[in-house]
Design a protein around this nucleic acid. Structure first.
Lengths: 234, 234
DNA sequence: ATTGCTTATATATATAGACATAATGAGCTT
DNA sequence: AAGCTCATTATGTCTATATATATAAGCAAT
């Protein structure tokens, strides 16, 4: 058992606390000693203990409430973190060569489902793009995107034939809010052709909507080639 | 533009820094002033500035290196966080009633793909479970699980007819490592029947493997009912 | 050019003390 | 019994200061 020595860093304290949780010295649902007491035990200060406990709470092991104290969570709601990189980066990091192609560009009135989904007026003109992302010339991702030009009129002039809308948007429009969903969809004829697979195949799909200060900016549907897995470790 | 006032909290400072990044006052790849200078500008202390910058770095906006300084990341690798709750909690939080059913329990030698995947010896005996999770009696998730009893022999005595293996494992075996993947699979006949859908339908699937101090503990394949979305906001 | 030392500097962390804030629970009132 | 008030207390945060550590950059020796 880790015996508290002097000069423990906040990392050391985190580790000791974690060990005690694992070894049920502090059982689930039980209350930890107060920061003050712990600081004394570890011959440290409240500030340092505070940081250790705060981080453990962020990581989902503890629940902290003023006055109520610090409690061990019975089923640690561990949080999986997924980095959401640009496709380009995701591909080139594997060592493969990234290639982009614009499939279609059109300005059109927003279809009903879109204006409902993004909360924009019926029939507002929007920019619609479809594009492909390849890794070593193998289809990697098929992107269907809608951009509301209201808050960014320049987007209508932008050239998307050489680089994707994501690259452009990241440079130009920092979003303030984002909704990201993952789901499984069934490949329709068009998606299947682009991703070089059979219609009806299961497709891992991401949908992201971003806002800038409350104004909807863009909705993207990203269809990943069969076999794609989104993986994380912790 | 947010003018620095006195008595700014670390939250305020975070917000000002974020605003300046958004407004390109501090452009991507550029170097921020040092903590000391910022502390002076905000008539705050280095400790407080440090916390603000540290958190922004954790959130993926900044990159910090000793001596080198703090730099604005050009394409913020924003990290999506997904809480991975127990199914039971996920269901009851929607207000629906949770119901569990054990479908099959068997002890058998590990099939080849499993021993390869989890790095356990060929033919080692493992516990195999299949179960269903319902929300208001509607199929919600079909779970296929494999447990290596080596490090937890009690698991062979456990009663899984009333509550699921996840509940049991969370109580008994705190994991130290976890690999979590999301993918889209095609419903085979069995999965389709359990989830009350058609064979061939796309199924959002999660696969998780956990280890305890390097020893593989369990692998679970979680098949979600059609229509399931894993969503996060940030 | 390459390697190895030195130094300056920016971040990382620790300490100590103060005030702020929320929530609990005891005691009082109705 | 139910509701209200208020002191208590644990965490939340800020200030001020000090030491630790990594490393970029310059300089020297190979």
């Amino acid at each position: 058992m880790a015996a508290p020595r002097a000069n423990m860093s906040y990392r050391d304290i985190k580790q000791v606390v974690l060990d005690r949780i694992h070894n049920k010295i502090w059982a689930p649902d039980s209350l930890l000693p107060s920061e003050t007491d712990l600081a004394e035990e570890f011959s440290s200060t409240r500030t340092t203990v505070n940081r250790a406990l705060r981080e453990l709470a962020e990581e989902g092991y503890l629940e902290r409430k003023r006055k109520a104290g610090t409690r061990v969570l019975n089923s640690p709601v561990r949080k999986a973190q997924f980095a959401i990189p640009l496709v380009r980066d995701e591909i080139s990091e594997t060592g493969a060569e990234y290639r982009y192609a614009l499939v279609e560009r059109a300005v059109m009135p927003a279809p009903g489902w879109l204006s409902a989904r993004m909360n924009i007026p019926q029939g507002r003109e929007v920019l619609h793009l479809r594009c492909m992302h390849y890794a070593d010339n193998t289809p990697f991702q098929y992107e269907v995107r809608w951009i509301v030009p209201d808050s960014i009129p320049e987007v209508l002039e932008a050239d998307f034939s050489r680089s994707g809308p994501n690259d452009w948007l990241v440079q130009k429009v920092p979003f303030t809010n984002l909704e990201l969903s993952f789901l499984a969809t069934k490949a329709d004829q068009s998606v299947a052709e682009f991703l070089d697979t059979q219609a009806g195949d299961p497709i891992f799909t991401a949908e992201r909507i971003t806002w800038l200060r409350g104004e909807p900016v863009t909705l993207a549907k990203l269809f990943f080639a069969p076999g794609y897995r989104m993986t994380t470790h912790l």
